[in-house]
Simulated scan of single mutants.
Amino acid sequence: MRTLSLVGIGSGNPDHLTLQAIRTLESADVILLPRKGAEKSELADLRRLITRDILKTSPKVVEFDYPVRDAGTPKYLDGVNTWHDALAGIWTDLITTHAPQGAHVALMVWGDPSLYDSTLRIADRLATRGLAMDVRVIPGITSLQMLTAAHAIPLNTLAGVVQITTGRNLRDQGWPQGAETVAVMLDGACAFRHLARTDLHIWWGAYLGMPQQILLSGTLADMTPKILTARAAARDRNGWIMDIYLMRRT
């Protein structure tokens, strides 16, 4: 049986690679390297840097283009499932073409495969396509860890409740009941601006761990226009943005 290692590589800084991640990548026969278009070429460049400058071995590197998710699909989850099916098909073709039985295939995952990442769900679909894989996960530093470290704050208050959610859920459902601290990911629409509350503090970060890292914090009322302005300018400047924020009741 082939082995598929999903290797968390952190949020953009090669210094965040664990020894386990490096050793796993060095032991791979094939490394699948995704490309996400010219606008996000830095994401592929980091993966190329790891294979070129950090690994002491030379696994075969197979690059592939990510399919684009159809954002116009009426139901969000339907569009995501179709997108995942397309990716599973690409992985199946690449693995069967470049990795013989018994081979070790590795895929570098931004952050960690456990936190708002679909790599594990896509890997589950390989079996339905007749491709049996021994799937292993190598944990990586998450953007949430990077955010709290960059702002030098704890994730939780003493014995407090933390909820991790998405911008879509925050927009549709508002502040989660019973939560003192809310961490929000995947929020391209800046759902925090719709919260009509005066008791919230926000810690925001973009490009965490990368040279262009941006950090802002303060009361939600004060920071909302500043974050919107900084985010729009950074996206125009870089062509893409990855950001995350944490809010806490004061």
Score class of each variant (00 low, 15 high):
residue 1 M to R: 09
residue 2 R to F: 06
residue 3 T to K: 08
residue 5 S to W: 02
residue 7 V to L: 10
residue 9 I to E: 03
residue 12 G to S: 04
residue 14 P to G: 04
residue 15 D to K: 15
residue 18 T to Y: 01
residue 19 L to D: 09
residue 21 A to Y: 05
residue 24 T to L: 03
residue 25 L to I: 05
residue 26 E to C: 08
residue 30 V to L: 15
residue 32 L to T: 07
residue 34 P to K: 06
residue 34 P to A: 04
residue 35 R to E: 09
residue 38 A to Q: 05
residue 41 S to N: 04
residue 41 S to L: 04
residue 44 A to E: 15
residue 47 R to K: 12
residue 48 R to T: 14
residue 48 R to Y: 14
residue 50 I to M: 08
residue 53 D to R: 15
residue 56 K to P: 00
residue 56 K to V: 08
residue 56 K to L: 14
residue 57 T to Y: 09
residue 58 S to T: 13
residue 58 S to C: 10
residue 59 P to W: 15
residue 60 K to A: 15
residue 62 V to N: 09
residue 65 D to V: 01
residue 70 D to F: 08
residue 75 K to S: 03
residue 76 Y to R: 11
residue 77 L to F: 11
residue 78 D to M: 10
residue 79 G to Q: 13
residue 80 V to R: 14
residue 80 V to H: 12
residue 83 W to E: 11
residue 83 W to T: 06
residue 84 H to L: 14
residue 86 A to G: 02
residue 86 A to Y: 00
residue 88 A to P: 00
residue 89 G to F: 11
residue 90 I to V: 13
residue 96 T to A: 12
residue 96 T to W: 06
residue 100 P to V: 11
residue 100 P to G: 14
residue 101 Q to S: 14
residue 103 A to R: 08
residue 106 A to F: 09
residue 107 L to F: 15
residue 111 G to E: 09
residue 112 D to G: 13
residue 113 P to Q: 15
residue 116 Y to K: 11
residue 117 D to P: 01
residue 119 T to C: 11
residue 124 D to Q: 12
residue 127 A to G: 05
residue 133 M to D: 05
residue 135 V to W: 04
residue 136 R to H: 07
residue 137 V to S: 13
residue 137 V to F: 12
residue 138 I to G: 03
residue 138 I to H: 07
residue 140 G to L: 11
residue 141 I to D: 01
residue 142 T to H: 05
residue 143 S to A: 13
residue 143 S to H: 06
residue 148 T to G: 05
residue 149 A to H: 08
residue 149 A to Q: 13
residue 149 A to N: 11
residue 151 H to T: 11
residue 151 H to Q: 10
residue 151 H to F: 04
residue 152 A to Y: 01
residue 154 P to W: 12
residue 156 N to D: 06
residue 156 N to W: 03
residue 156 N to C: 03
residue 157 T to G: 13
residue 163 Q to Y: 01
residue 164 I to P: 00
residue 164 I to F: 03
residue 168 R to T: 12
residue 169 N to G: 02
residue 170 L to W: 14
residue 171 R to K: 15
residue 177 Q to Y: 02
residue 177 Q to R: 06
residue 178 G to Y: 06
residue 178 G to D: 07
residue 179 A to S: 13
residue 182 V to G: 00
residue 183 A to E: 00
residue 183 A to P: 00
residue 192 F to V: 09
residue 200 L to G: 06
residue 200 L to H: 08
residue 202 I to S: 02
residue 205 G to Q: 01
residue 207 Y to I: 00
residue 208 L to Y: 02
residue 208 L to V: 01
residue 209 G to E: 01
residue 209 G to W: 02
residue 211 P to T: 06
residue 211 P to L: 07
residue 214 I to H: 04
residue 215 L to C: 02
residue 216 L to E: 00
residue 216 L to M: 07
residue 219 T to V: 00
residue 220 L to N: 02
residue 225 P to F: 13
residue 225 P to T: 11
residue 228 L to T: 04
residue 228 L to V: 08
residue 229 T to Q: 14
residue 230 A to E: 05
residue 231 R to Q: 12
residue 231 R to Y: 09
residue 231 R to D: 04
residue 235 R to L: 12
residue 235 R to K: 14
residue 235 R to C: 12
residue 245 Y to D: 01
residue 248 R to F: 00
